[in-house]
Amino acid sequence: MKVGVVTFPGSLDDRDAQRAVRHAGADAVALWHGDHDLHGVDAIVLPGGFSYGDYLRCGAIAARSPIMTEVIAAANAGMPVLGICNGFQILVEAHLLPGGLIRNDHGDFVCRDQKLRVENASTAWTNGFTVGQEITIPLKNAEGGFIVDAETLTRIEGEGQVAFRYLDVNPNGSLDDIAGLTNAAGNVVGLMPHPEHAIEPGFGPDTPDAMRSGTDGITFFTSVMQSALARA
C-alpha cells in the first residue's frame, strides 16, 4: 500500500508522518504542494506544520494550493485522507470537514501528552480502535480551539462525526472537547493531536509502564491499511 504525505512549504511533521507510514508497514510517498499528481497513492496524510507560514488563517492558503485540487477530488471519491494538526486545519479550510480552528483559549502554544477517547472506530483511520478506548497522543499547537455553529454541532454529534474527544483536560477550549472529526463517509479524518509522534517506543508519550513508550498512534496507520485491504 502506498500512502502519500504532502509537503507544503512550512510543513514540519511530514518526515515524521512518512516514518509512521513505514512503521505501519506501508510505503510512504512524498507529495509536493505545487504538483497536480498524487503518484498513484492509496491514501493521503496532510501533516502538521505551519504551511506557507500560516500568517493568514491557519491552513487557508494550503487549502488552495495546487495539490489540494487532487486531494479534494480523491477525498470526495472515497480515498482515505488524514489531516493532522495543520492538516486538520487544511481539511476544515478545504470544507472536507466542518467547523473551524481558532487560537487556543489560553492564548499560548501548548505541547503535552494528551489523553483522548475514541468516539468513532469505524472510519478508515480508526477501525483498529474500539469505541470508548482511551489513548494518549502528543498534542502541540497554538490554534487548536474547535468551533462550529450550534446546528452543525448538533448534527455532527448526532451523526457520529466526532472521532476523538479530549479527556481529563480540554487543552484549547474546543467545543464539546472535540479533538478530531470524521466526514460522514468515514474516509476523511482530522485531529489536532499528532499520532505520528506515538508510533515508536522510546520516542512517544510517557505511559505508566515506561518513559516515552506510548505507541497508540500507530493504530491510525495500521487502520488505513486494514481498510484498504477490506476495500480491495
Binding site: R15, D16, R19, G48, F109, V110, C111, P138, E196, E200
Partner: peptide, 10 residues
C-alpha cells in the same frame, strides 16, 4: 517548556 514542541522530528 510546555510552550515548546519537544516531539517534532520524532
Amino acid at each position: 517548556t510546555s510552550q515548546y514542541d519537544r516531539y517534532v522530528m520524532g
